[in-house]
Amino acid sequence: MKNRLRVLRAELDISQAELADRIGVARQTIVAIEGEKYAPSLPLAFKLSRVFNLPVEQIFDPESAE
């Protein structure tokens, strides 16, 4: 699923590992989401939404959802 995670993370100046720790997942999970290889569940998307203080649809592109 297309997303702006990499850009938003760069704006906050946090590493993949820091973001992973903040939402309680493995760094590999962040890598997979950023690489658009894995679409997170709703609870995980909301955790990311809280970190970036943005609604989910501004992080993930709903048009790209299968």
């Binding site: 997942v25 493995a26 997979a32 997170p40």
Partner: peptide, 8 residues
């Protein structure tokens, strides 16, 4: 114990 992606 692992996250959803690792579990998958």
């Amino acid at each position: 114990g692992v996250d959803e992606f690792e579990r998958r």
